[in-house]
Computed example of a mutant assay.
Amino acid sequence: MYEPIRTKSVHSTMAGTPSDFPHRSREEELDIQLAGHLAALLAVTDELRALTPSADLDTAAQRLAGELSRLRGGTPLRAASTAADGDPLALHRKAHALAGRALVVAASRADTAAAILSAERMDAHTAALAADPRELTTTG
């Protein structure tokens, strides 16, 4: 009634058995996550720069690009933003969330420079949201 399995399992459950596929270390995974969050934050920052140009956003974009270069070892790919009709408040909310995620990962990997940059960006986006009176009302 029961026939034993004759082929090797695709799941390596035995301790000490070498795997057939490469594994990344925790540090490599955190590097990839942090670079992804910072790249997304840079993209949103570039969109904000297209909508509301400012020296603060220009500086932030340069610093984010510098961190990405450090993490990835090259110049980050940046697309020219064509967002002329976007909602700045929605972009600030999105950037705040991305900066928060980057902060968590940067703290997890003990990357002080990225953590400081992420925290500064969170503060800047919080200030931008607080400066808009529409954000203070809960209706319509």
Rank of each mutant, 00 (worst) to 15 (best):
E120M: 11
R109G: 05
Y2C: 07
S25H: 04
A113C: 02
E135P: 02
S54L: 10
R49N: 13
G16C: 11
I116Y: 09
R49W: 02
S9D: 06
E28Y: 03
T13D: 09
Q62V: 00
E28M: 06
V44T: 12
A60H: 10
I32H: 14
G74W: 00
A50P: 02
S108L: 10
A35M: 03
T126P: 02
A80H: 11
A113G: 04
R6Q: 14
L48C: 02
P76S: 03
K94V: 07
R24Y: 05
T82Q: 12
E47V: 01
P4D: 10
A90G: 13
D58K: 10
D123Q: 14
S118P: 02
S81P: 04
D56G: 09
R72Y: 06
D20M: 15
L103H: 08
A80T: 09
A43M: 12
A43F: 04
P18V: 02
H96D: 11
Q62C: 08
V44K: 01
Y2K: 15
E120Q: 11
G66M: 08
S69H: 02
S12R: 14
M14T: 13
T17E: 11
R70D: 14
T45K: 00
L41R: 00
E3D: 09
A115R: 06
R134S: 05
R70G: 05
E28D: 10
A50D: 02
M1A: 06
A97R: 13
I5C: 11
H125P: 06
T59A: 14
L71M: 08
E135R: 07
E120I: 01
D85R: 08
S69N: 11
A43R: 09
M14W: 15
T112Q: 05
A102H: 00
A110L: 12
T13N: 12
S25R: 01
P22C: 05
R134P: 04
Y2E: 13
T126H: 07
T52E: 12
S81I: 03
D31Q: 11
A83T: 08
H23I: 13
R109W: 04
G100T: 00
L30M: 08
A80M: 07
T112Y: 01
P22Q: 03
V44L: 10
A131P: 09
T59K: 12
S69C: 01
R93C: 07
A43C: 07
M122F: 02
E27I: 04
L98N: 01
L42E: 06
Y2V: 15
A130V: 14
Y2R: 14
E27N: 03
L30E: 13
S118K: 02
G73F: 08
L89M: 13
